[in-house]
Amino acid sequence: MSTATDTPVKAPAAAAEPEVSNLWRDAYRRFRKNKLAVGAFIVLVFLILVAIFADVISPARYDYSNLIDANQFPNSQHWLGTDNVGRDFLSRIIYGARISLVVGFSVQIIALLIGVPLGIAAGMFGGWVDYIIMRGVEVLTAIPIWLFALFIITVWQSGETNQSNGLLNVILAIGLVGWVDICRLTRAQILTLREKEYVLAANAIGAKPIHIAIHHLLPNALAPLIVAVTLGIPSAIFTEAGLSFLGFGINDPLPSWGKMVADSSSYIRVYWHLGLFPTICIAITMLTFSFVGDGLRDALDPNLKT
C-alpha cells in the first residue's frame, strides 16, 4: 500500500481532457490490437444479427410443431434435433437469441442506468445520501423477486386475460430489482478511488463532484463493473426462465434460452441436445461479453496509456 501512495500517479484523464478525441482514437487502436476481443466482438455482432434476422434465417417457425418428429436427435434434416413438441430446435435457438439477448441486455442497461448514478452518489456524497441509498438497497435485497413478480402480475393484469407475451413485464421486474449489486459495486469502487491522489488533486483545483465522478472515478471503476455486467447477462437470462414458471415470464411457445435450459431438466438424461445447445449459447454470449468487456477495459484503461 505504501508503494501506492509513494508512487506519483499521473492524472491521465485530466491531462487528456483537451484532446478527448485522441483518447477514443487511442482506445480504438488498442482495442483493434486485441485479437481475442475483436474476435469476440465479431461473434457478438453475429449473435445480434441472428437475433434481429431470426425470421429470415431460421429454417422453420419457432412454433411450428410436427408431433411425429418429436424428440429427434440432431440429424441432417434438423441440425440440432427437435424438441418434445416436434419443433425444429435450431429455429427455436435462433428465435431464442432474440428474447434472451433482449432480456440480458436491457436488464443490464436498466441496472446500469439506476445503479451507477446511485452508487456514485452514495460513494461521493456519503452521509445521509449514502445512508438512505444503502438502506434502500437492503430493503430491495430482502424481497424475493417472485413475490414482487406475483404482485406485478396482479396489478398489471387486473383480472383481464393478458394478451401480451409478457416480455416488458419480465424486463421491468428483473431490472428494477437488479440494480442493487451494480449500485453497491460502484459505491465501493468510488469509496477507494476518491482518496487517490488525482482525485484529491482535482478536488483541490475546485472541480465539481459530478465532473470528478464522470471523468476520474467512473473510468477507474470500470473493470469490476464490466465483470458484473458480464455475469449479469446469464443471470438475467436464467431469472427470466424462472419467472416463466410463475406464468409471469414470456409465454410459450415463444422460446428463450433460459427457458429452454430449464425445460430440459426432465429430458436431459436421454435427450441431451435439449439442454446442451441452449447452455452453449448462453455460455458463448457470456464469454464473448467478457472478452469484449476485458478488451474495452484495457483499451480505455488510462493506466495503460503509454
Binding site: P234, F238, T279
Partner: peptide, 9 residues
C-alpha cells in the same frame, strides 16, 4: 461453465 450451467444439471 460454472456460471452458465444451471446447478440442477
Amino acid at each position: 461453465l460454472g456460471i452458465t450451467v444451471p446447478n440442477f444439471v
